[in-house]
Amino acid sequence: MSKNLVTTVWKENMQFESDNPSGLNLFMDAGEENGGKGEGYRPKALMLSSLAGCSGLDVVSLLKKMHAEVADFKIEVTAELTDEHPKFYNKVKVDYHFKDAELKPKKIQKAVNLSVTKYCGVMEMFRHFADVEIEIFLHDIAK
Rank of each mutant, 00 (worst) to 15 (best):
L5V: 15
W10I: 09
W10T: 02
F16L: 13
F16Y: 12
S18H: 05
S18Y: 08
D19V: 08
D19I: 08
P21R: 01
L24S: 08
L24A: 13
N25S: 14
E33N: 07
G38E: 03
G38W: 03
Y41F: 12
R42T: 00
P43L: 04
P43S: 11
P43V: 03
L46D: 06
S49P: 08
S49Y: 14
S50W: 06
S55K: 11
S55G: 12
D58N: 03
D58T: 06
V60H: 01
V60M: 14
K64Q: 14
K64C: 01
A68R: 04
A68L: 06
V70Q: 04
A71K: 15
D72W: 07
D72H: 15
D72M: 06
F73Q: 00
K74H: 15
I75Y: 05
E76A: 09
V77Q: 10
V77D: 10
V77A: 04
A79Y: 10
L81H: 02
K87V: 08
V92T: 12
V92N: 03
V92R: 09
K93T: 13
V94I: 13
Y96N: 01
H97K: 07
K99G: 00
D100V: 02
D100E: 07
D100H: 15
A101H: 08
A101K: 14
E102T: 12
L103N: 09
L103T: 05
K104C: 02
N113Q: 12
K118W: 01
Y119P: 06
E124A: 15
H128I: 06
H128Y: 01
A130T: 06
V132M: 04
E133Y: 09
E135D: 05
I136R: 00
I136G: 02
F137M: 01
L138G: 07
K143M: 05
